[in-house]
Design a protein around this nucleic acid. Structure first.
Lengths: 188, 188
DNA sequence: TTTGACATGTAAAGCGTTACATGATTGT
DNA sequence: ACAATCATGTAACGCTTTACATGTCAAA
């Protein structure tokens, strides 16, 4: 599959940069749908260089510190574009450990279950507000020619996803405590 | 992390079954948020047996075909319940190869981009209708005591997620072709 | 002078998929 | 007889994370 390969080629197709900078990209712009540690990136860059997909030039930061600035080659660009043009079927639902917990949550006490949902709701609310703040970097909606449109689309998708997750968690909280109030009023 | 371990323990906590049956569970009920092939399940069952989390009895189907029916032990149940009770932070966004493609999609022609979105929209619509059909197995909303509630919650979440994905894809289609109509009318 | 960011690598271990391998049972 | 499903395993390969390992640079 070599998915990391194409993530890297895609980024280098936008702009030449070092492994460290690529690493930073995976931590910011792409973080919403991809990630990779430097321990995976550096070996992949080595491999891509050997395969002729990219080349590098050594640059100096300060006096001696070396960094390798990688540039995509024509072969690399061709390969990347070919990959991008393939139509690939929808991938299977990704593993989700939280949903696994929810599936088994009838083994928890009502209180524990509620706490679990509320804790996650708080975290997703926070994530949502961060994403909305990210949205401010766009000055309106990019038009269909803009190279920013892809970025805008994935951010929009991420916000919609988080909003839905929050709604779902609220619904789960309602379902968990649905009969609780009546129960307690009668029981106490 | 041993997440497969807890997925298996959780299932065996509901009901004793064979590796083959566990395999089938991963293909149906849990498929919305977890999966595992038999090549991963059998070694894990072996390991869990060695660790004293589960035991098995050999049963015979037909005349000679053996199957191992696994049962969770008290130690296994304790371990599972402890894991379930831990409060774990929200996990980072899973890798999504389609969103990676969308991010880079400005390199595609308008037509290619549109086809990509439309193809995925069709697939997600199909998935959504399948999930809605699955929902019919529930006779109304399970109450908060029901062991079915977790199942109901994850199905609800999956439907909400697919609905949002469809909405997002439609939005992407609009954004891709936003200025196209005007453009073509003027250009032609 | 010390902290944090910059910068690049390797090693080990775990997780996951595909492929290899075998054989019984049931229904057509 | 044949196919589909039941049933269980191992091997090889690739991907990902965590930890190990080293050293520079800029700012406080």
């Amino acid at each position: 599959m070599r998915e990391l390969k194409y993530a890297i080629l895609g980024l280098l197709n936008q702009k030449s940069m070092s492994g460290y900078e690529l690493s930073a990209e995976f931590g910011s712009a792409l973080n919403e749908f991809w990630s990779a540690k430097h321990s995976q990136i550096y070996p992949e860059l080595k491999k891509l260089t050997q395969e002729g997909m990219i080349t590098f030039e050594v640059a100096i930061s300060g006096n001696v510190l070396q960094k390798k600035i990688y540039t995509i080659t024509d072969a690399g660009r061709r390969d990347f574009l070919e990959w991008l043009s393939e139509d690939q079927p929808m991938s299977s639902t990704p593993k989700d450990i939280f949903r696994l917990r929810v599936f088994f949550s009838n083994e928890l006490s009502d209180q524990q279950r509620l706490t679990m949902f509320e804790s996650h709701l708080e975290q997703h609310k926070l994530r949502l507000s961060y994403l909305k703040q990210q949205m401010e970097k766009f000055d309106g909606t990019p038009d269909d020619e803009s190279p920013l449109l892809g970025d805008y689309m994935v951010l929009t998708g991420a916000i919609m996803r988080e909003e839905t997750t929050c709604k779902w968690l609220k619904k789960c909280i309602t379902l968990s405590s649905k009969q609780d109030k009546e129960y307690k009023k009668t029981g106490d």
